[in-house]
Amino acid sequence: MRPFDYQRAERFEHAAQLVGEDGTRLLAGGTNLIDLMKLQVETPQTLVDIGRLSLGTIAEEGDGLRIGALATNTATAVDPRVRRDYPVLARAILAGATQQLRNKATTAGNLCQRTRCYNFTNIDQPCNKREPGSGCGAIKGIARLHAVLGTSDQCIATYPGDMAVALAALDARVEISGERRSRSVRLRDFHRLPGDTPWRDNVLDAGEVITAVTLPAPVGGIQLYRKVRERSSYAFALVSVAAVIGIEENRFTRADLAFGGLAHKPWHDPRLAELLVGSEPSLALFDKAADLLLEDARGYGENDFKIPLARRTLAAVLCEATGVEP
């Protein structure tokens, strides 16, 4: 690990002031950042420890729920309100990582974990995300876990988190505090596609700090998180589907779907809800939804299987939610 200057932020304003400086990174749970520092992928000059700031509260706000930036993944997943009103979020968190990691990992840290692949984490390999202009070692290389939607010729890495996929289905918002202004963005717009700037995983500008994630009023319905992976625990998703489904009189009244493992960000396609809502559930309809979802999908050899896998996983989730026989 490269040497760095360690500072503990005693107040939020202190952290916010420091994070605007070049070479400074905020340290929360550290489960991704410290790992990447050991690999010399991340080499901050200054590490600002914000772990003791009071940003971990989970509280009702309006009709919804506000999850503080430093609430641990465990605290969120075990919260009785989350389990009752937003079960897809509890399920997604519990499907990720291990208990040891979830005990340390925080809400904001989880959102800011790097979108990455094994070329990004290996400094001997080319990677446009880690070293702009060095090339992509995954395109035409080992690309089993890589993206099939929203890729660019610069980067085909996938956002590896589960929590954010559920937050995308729930249409959560990310509250951001900056030097000049505070703003809030939809989680669906928080992470970025790689385009020509694959080193930018999300829309945070220099000096901006996430303060909370807010959930809208509970919508009930059937909430599912299905994660397909290569072993039954502690593995990234090959494909995951978060679903918040409403059905009345055998027609969809709600079909909020988000996907993990397919893209550089949690994938949400508003056309799916437009197609499904008002229609009667059927296998033919689910197939049409998959056609829309995967219209522009592109495999890179080793990950070609993700395209039919996403189709089948979507159908399986919709069958489970609606009772249609698979």
Binding site: Y6, R8, L27, G30, T31, I34, D35, D49, G51, Q99, Q100, L101, N103, K104
Partner: peptide
């Protein structure tokens, strides 16, 4: 609370 001590800095 159980954690991975390898991914945590002692100073924290």
């Amino acid at each position: 609370v159980r954690i991975n001590s390898c991914l945590s800095l002692a100073v924290t």
